[in-house]
Write a protein that binds this DNA or RNA. Structure first.
Lengths: 198, 198, 198, 198
DNA sequence: GATGAATGAGCATTCATTCAT
DNA sequence: CATGAATGAATGCTCATTCAT
């Protein structure tokens, strides 16, 4: 990669990071492009060299951050030796929840976009195939000792349930703080998995 | 109610309706207060006599519309003679889903705000107590022949699950069109209810 | 007219005058709306209360100024007792040329828009019918002792010829200064009129 | 001409053609230099190696296109054996009108600049002397069997008249479509020529 | 209460021009 | 010669909010 291309990538990343910081602290609506470029230390026009508008960078950020979240959870899972699909899926959910508990601005940012974003992220980012988490999930399911039917429905239901309840529980402690809600959530997740077992 | 008060209420309602129509067709971000007042046929200053700003009217609209949704579902439930908590809750969910299938702009508008909005709506609207659907749900549970523990957690989990999956299924037909997804959703709902039965 | 309406009309006129001054001195392309409002001493938003954009005010200005030019020429004609269509038309042309010689910025501004603008100005301004110069010309022709055919073609040809040659002669002294070119122009005008006489 | 010079000329021509295409389709004001270079497939900086700015290329284009128009008309005239100045001048006007009828974007572009542009084009382009149409016209006049006075005034008047009326008649069909207006125009042209005959 | 003219800060976006490579 | 990334001034336009009537 030439020096110019290196520089370009660096500029884009700086804009990316600046936007993320501002979106999570001030909110998207209150963040002006002039804020982003000022923080990034580049000229206003430069922003438009890399992104179409504020919503372009927002979408790319959400996809990127969601991706990161799953990638980290999967790495952690691979480091341990968790047996059984139920335990594996709950491990991933638990890891993501713990990460978001520590990073509420991030939770607030990706908010309820998490779910569909996650499963579609490969599409959005256009990144390499080994990042396709949907594929990873399917492989995990296939490797389990049990057989499952309607796996896409199963995954969808679990992810939506965890995402939606986790969001409220973490941010508002309603109806319970997340640590107290976890047992209920994981029980429901297990029930849903069981119900798809052949 | 005096003629003046009547007139006042009417103006407020006109603004309410105009805002709703614009929010659902143009989106909230693209709707200006000047659009709302123009459609409502009142002067710009008048808006500020009734609402603080665009987000004030937005929140009140969401609460109002959510309320309406539950009220209609409850009325329909009362018209039939559905026995058993499972059947009753599923009836309500089913009714709301069917309503939203026919009214996608509304779904899009209340979107994922539905859930918390619903349970908190009494707070937001400050309306009369007999509209408190949380109370209504509690009574339904109390009237069932079984006993339940952690009813608030149970309701929360069900509502979040139904809201989150229903939203995607209706609007994007993912992972399945809503009619095909319903059996899976209702099975999960039943499992969650069962797991809270003493 | 209420005080408010009076004020509105005054604001619009101030914007009109400021725009005209700037357009004629700096040119249209180099005149920003912020220049106009600054000169007019009003806020930027006020401009958009009265005009759609820069080109809206430009078109209205051209129509207005062209109108004025013809109105003044006609008034001068009526003050004298000029006999015969040829003499009358040449009087009007001569009066307009003399006015523009004294006001080159105006000539430069309306430039070649003069002609069509003039004959269509009633349409553009939507002003009262007695300003319709096309009608006035037709009446002048009808009142002449001779009969004419294809009067619309005759007027069009004369006006285009006078406008086009006058513009160059006044502004660039090419091929001759206007005072030296006038005899040639008026001879051509007479020939064209004669050729339409029955 | 060396290969480098050839390449240079080619680049300049590509920019020229791209600019013309854009000016005629999008208009000059709406055409950015970045549009021109993109269409030409050269880098932005390259533009500035050949032209000062947008208006530089515009002026050169007008002169070039006008030139072409006259050159083609003269070629066509030479191919036929038209006798008499009147017939010759009308032949040229007629040829140019017919060309512009088929190419309205071009007419729109050179618009009313045609006239002065034509007579001054030798100056603007700085091209070789045998392209000087003014000289060509003078020779045509000298070769006629009649003698003329004030030939510069005569040419100027004819060219302005034809340019100005033709523009409106072709583009707006006002006051008549060009084919119906032609007899009137040519009659006026003949009258003007006659009036300069000694 | 109701109006709507006026405001002017605020913002997105464009684009001619430069200059290091 | 040619490039094209970077610049940042310039500008059109929006819109929430105010306030005199």
């Amino acid at each position: 990669m030439g020096k110019v291309d290196e520089n370009k990538k660096k500029k884009k990343e700086t804009l990316f990071n600046s936007a993320y910081e501002l979106f999570t602290t001030k909110g998207i609506n209150s963040t002006a492009i002039s804020d982003i470029v000022e923080k990034a230390g580049v000229a206003k026009g430069t922003f438009y060299l890399y992104f179409k508008d504020k919503y372009d960078i927002k979408n790319k950020l959400i996809a990127h951050k969601t991706h990161e979240l799953f990638r980290e959870a999967k790495s952690a899972l691979d480091a341990e030796h968790v047996q059984g699909l139920e335990e594996q899926l709950i491990f991933i959910i638990d890891h993501i929840i713990d990460t978001l508990v520590e990073n509420k601005p991030l939770l607030n940012f990706i908010s309820k976009n998490l779910v569909m974003g996650a499963l579609r992220s490969a599409l959005l980012t256009g990144e390499s195939t080994d990042n396709d988490f949907y594929e990873i999930f399917l492989r995990m399911i296939a490797d389990d000792k049990y057989e499952y039917e309607h796996v896409d429905v199963m995954l969808f239901t679990i992810v939506e349930l965890a995402g939606s309840t986790g969001y409220n529980s973490i941010l508002y402690q309603e109806p319970l703080p997340i640590e107290q809600y976890k047992p209920f959530l994981y029980r429901s997740v297990r029930l849903i998995i069981d119900s798809h077992r052949l």
